[in-house]
Design a protein around this nucleic acid. Sequence first.
DNA 1: AGAATAGTGTCTTTCAGACATTATGTT
DNA 2: AACATAATGTCTGAAAGACACTATTCT
Lengths: 257, 257
Amino acid sequence: MNKTNDFSEETSDAEDVFLATYDPDKYARPSVAVDIALFTIRNGALNILLIERAGHPNKGHWALPGGFVESDEDVTDAAYRELVEETGIEMGEFYLEQLKTYGAPQRDPRTRVISVAHFALVGQIETPHAGSDAAQARFWSIEDLTELPLAFDHAIIIADALERVRSKLEYTSIATSLLEEPFTISELRKVYEAVWGTPIADASNFARKLRACEGFLQPSGSATSGASKGGRPAQLYGPGVNPILYPPFLRPETSSV
Amino acid sequence: MNKTNDFSEETSDAEDVFLATYDPDKYARPSVAVDIALFTIRNGALNILLIERAGHPNKGHWALPGGFVESDEDVTDAAYRELVEETGIEMGEFYLEQLKTYGAPQRDPRTRVISVAHFALVGQIETPHAGSDAAQARFWSIEDLTELPLAFDHAIIIADALERVRSKLEYTSIATSLLEEPFTISELRKVYEAVWGTPIADASNFARKLRACEGFLQPSGSATSGASKGGRPAQLYGPGVNPILYPPFLRPETSSV
DNA sequence: AGAATAGTGTCTTTCAGACATTATGTT
DNA sequence: AACATAATGTCTGAAAGACACTATTCT
């Protein structure tokens, strides 16, 4: 294994044995894409942004927004870029995290596409216009997805993203990314209820627990006033310096199964 | 967007706008590889399999085993295949799970390689022979890695894999994949101590908690006999039908930070 | 006043963790 | 007998969850 071409040394992630038996067809390079499950709260329900496919295959089915990774671009940077391009929201206005990579060979029937899926969370956002093509873009309530035809393996990606988000609400502050600042603990509780799809039995225990976790919520000092249906004004908060909720607030058992 | 070539429809994971402005250089297809962090227990310590690089770059540095994904192969299947090829262990003798995808553009200085990292757990295993090339393969204790030069971004991958494994011991049965069956609860506890790098304060509470989780351990009915330094024989177990440990057994705080 | 929402007090149950005790084997 | 390891009993404190009660606003 001491050839003089550009690949005389074994590649970083493979061993010499593979280059020794290199077959350009066998190792044809796949396309690498990112798909993003963007969640937001609308009318008290968890929503996800989907794009209707204008062409075959899966014409008329709904797909996650996404795009190809550029040749000199970090994979997660590609996810940020795509989300900004397709929704118009600004960097720093949303939370984004890598979810999982989907690499079944036939997941796209036309050509090999390996997709690095991400999920994103945003507070208020206007409905994005469809892209420069004819595809339609809109938010769908999570509960309505069962009746919606979803493209490719995107139903699985969405299910995995949902489970990840639901799980991370238990022990992190990501729920605050689904709200504008400042927010009340009641508003935050309603986010939890929307994401988990189940009511939290005791609002006062929820609030007490979050307040007890040092640095988790940052009190703004001010409180709500007016414009409500009555009731004592609530303290306003922002996310604190501590993104970890400890002890965690676990989902009711009915929703975790 | 109604051309007549093979890409007249937008691709599954990208939007028409990208194909409309398609630039073959901009969207040059990267190589996609898998890297595997294979853990096992040796002499009571957590070990990881590494391969010494024989060529530049990073000559003499240690790297995770891995290889390229084939053109018609699922990404996770590639990880299984590489592990079997490079270690000789059989399918079903180890646990494997996708970890995370690493896609920084310069992570391999020669060419764009996006790596889908996995981690794997195995019980007893003989030291694998190096591949067909001159590279050396051996297990390293996790504690010795600080002094070891690691190739590319593999130090980060290993750190992420370690954290994932340590975390999943708390609420799943994956630790049993680091043992041969049947095993005693003491042996399982020593796995936890090796992975977490910290002693479990009270062995009896640990055993009681695992036994209390229904279906987590499958009693074999028999017990150890002889070949020990004395002491009451222990019951022998295998992994049960329930892979979730609930309530979880959390790490001592000293090791989780 | 009455409704609505925010927040506190407190009790019960569950569980983590410490530690003492019993059980059963080897040397 | 002495020792080693396995397993049980029991106590304390932390936390979850239920629920009664107080606080402060709007209509």
